[in-house]
């Protein structure tokens, strides 16, 4: 693969995203999604979750987690396609879809966590 100056930056974002997602995503999925759905834990209530997210640092952290995890996934998946499926001829399209997807997801996270809905809910 051709070396570009942006590559080292992508690798460090990959690392940061890999570490954050390894440390934080399983417990978030378990507490918020899996355990309540299985009836192992009560589902967290609306008031509780909004009060947690009312703290700007909590929202900032969640945005950083989502954005970096997405960049990590995009970068890793790009190389999986490159090594695994050997689709080198579609390299540019793969790059655009992977990093474009990560960018879109990050913008979505920022929109969700840093814009207000019509009624003051969050």
């Amino acid at each position: 693969m051709r070396r570009t100056p942006i590559e080292p930056i992508l690798w460090s974002l990959f690392s940061a995203g890999g570490m954050l997602s390894a440390l934080f995503i399983p417990v978030l999925l378990f507490i918020l999604v899996l355990a309540p759905a299985l009836g192992w834990l009560p589902a967290p209530g609306y008031a509780q979750l909004t009060s947690l997210l009312s703290h700007p640092l909590a929202r900032l952290f969640l945005i950083a987690l989502c954005a970096l995890a997405l960049v990590h996934a995009a970068h890793r998946f790009r190389y999986t396609l490159y090594d695994g499926l050997q689709i080198k001829h579609l390299n540019e399209l793969v790059n655009i879809l992977c990093y474009g997807g990560a960018l879109a997801g990050s913008v979505w996270a920022i929109f969700l966590l840093f814009t207000r809905v019509a009624e003051p809910r969050l």
């Binding site: 997602s21 609306y46 996934a73």
Partner: peptide, 28 residues
């Protein structure tokens, strides 16, 4: 490959969490 393909599920987990936040935004 099993290790590398976890990337897809990390991305899916983020989407799941963001859907959660989106639902939270829409109210109780």
């Amino acid at each position: 490959i099993l290790r590398e393909i976890t990337s897809v599920f990390v991305a899916a987990a983020v989407v799941l969490l963001l859907l959660y936040v989106a639902a939270l935004r829409r109210g109780p």
